[in-house]
Design a protein around this nucleic acid. Structure first.
Lengths: 210, 210
DNA sequence: TATAGTAACCTACTTATAGTAGTTTACTAC
DNA sequence: GTAGTAAACTACTATAAGTAGGTTACTATA
């Protein structure tokens, strides 16, 4: 991601005294500036007027070079997605056993998020602001429900509350992702889905709807 | 959710010949109409002008009664979130063992999604359109990676590809949710998070970072 | 060194949509 | 039948995406 950083690009640009900068360089500057802007403000709260101001260029230049706000966001999204994917794939490839592959892949993912917190949030999670807090609240309530379930069952009796809270959120994320996946597999019964996740958490040797 | 349906409300409204409808009734009509509109078009692609048209009222009436587009969406989001929460809680309460509680809770969730597919998507997942396809593509690539991992490890050797695909998506959802949760627990190391999910999937009896 | 061609850029607009100021209409109580 | 008010309206502002059409500065060739 961003093989060249913004400082470099702008140094190169400063050479062109009267402001006529070659296309490629200008595009790189726009994309990198936009990436920062989206990370700071999210998609909706970023405006093309502001971007033009930051790049010190008029709006039609932006549109000429990157097409539209949507397209600009998609470029950034796709590039970041590719880097994330590559990093996970490499990590997995370099490990040998299933367990070490899972650990390595997970670690690669969390390291990516750590390095690009704001950007990751803006690109992959939601259009920050507006409703993220409200949705977070609903998620928290559901996770609390799961946490209570786990605690009262003594299934993880030697575990810390932090761990349980994290696992509860992870579990809710799993349900949600499975529900999204379900849109493309509508023939599956709700009972089956519920069984899948239960079985994943509490493995039994009983034959299951797999 | 929607103790009264829209048909009922509009029947009551039709009594008021010259269009002066009591506040409460009008609010109910607006909220229910908006819920349908948001479910159909998502937040961004819904406009207050269109809502006013559907309700056959001028825009200031809408603003007088529900404040703003944001607020309207939040009302609907909160109500739906509350119903979802209640249904899961009831299902969990009525079951006895941990396993049956997990199944019942999961089933309640998936039934809710089934009954309100479009609305659930619009409220809880994303502002449809724009980037949902691009994000879905990235998620799919990552899930494929996980699927391949599972298949090649023979960890689930008697499982169908559909099941494996679903589980892979669920697992990715778990990672993502844990990363979001991480924003509120930044002191935790990436390694710890990666271990948590690995351990969840492949339980060992070794002591762990819990 | 003049000038034709073009890449890069600009000013000033249109369109869409959230939100509002100020006014009018119909029902209600006396 | 008239005063008061709840409900509604017309017509506006502001912001932001996107565009039409024209201008400027570099480049190649005579």
């Amino acid at each position: 991601m961003s093989r060249e950083n913004l400082k470099n690009i702008e140094k190169q640009i400063s050479v062109y005294k009267h402001g006529k900068v070659p296309k490629e360089l200008r595009i790189a500057q726009i994309v990198l500036t936009a990436r920062t802007m989206f990370a700071q403000n999210g998609y909706t709260n970023s405006s093309m007027d502001e971007l033009a101001k930051r790049v010190r260029v008029s709006k039609p230049v932006i549109y000429e070079l990157v097409g539209s706000k949507d397209n600009l966001f998609k470029m950034i999204l796709t590039e970041a997605g590719q880097e994330l994917q590559d990093r996970i794939q490499n990590a997995v490839d370099e490990a040998s056993t299933l367990e070490s592959k899972l650990k390595a892949g997970g670690l690669a993912f969390f390291n990516f998020v750590k390095e690009h917190r704001q950007l990751w949030l803006a690109l992959f999670v939601n259009d920050q602001g507006l409703f993220s807090k409200d949705i977070a609240l609903i998620r928290k309530e559901q996770s609390d429900l799961v946490s209570n379930l786990i605690v009262s069952s003594n299934a993880f009796e030697n575990s810390s509350l932090t761990y349980i809270s994290g696992i509860a959120h992870a579990l809710n994320g799993a349900y949600e992702a499975l529900a999204i996946w379900w849109f493309d597999h509508p023939e599956i019964e709700p009972e089956t889905l519920a069984n899948w996740i239960t079985e994943l958490l509490l493995p039994t040797d009983l034959p299951l709807n797999r």
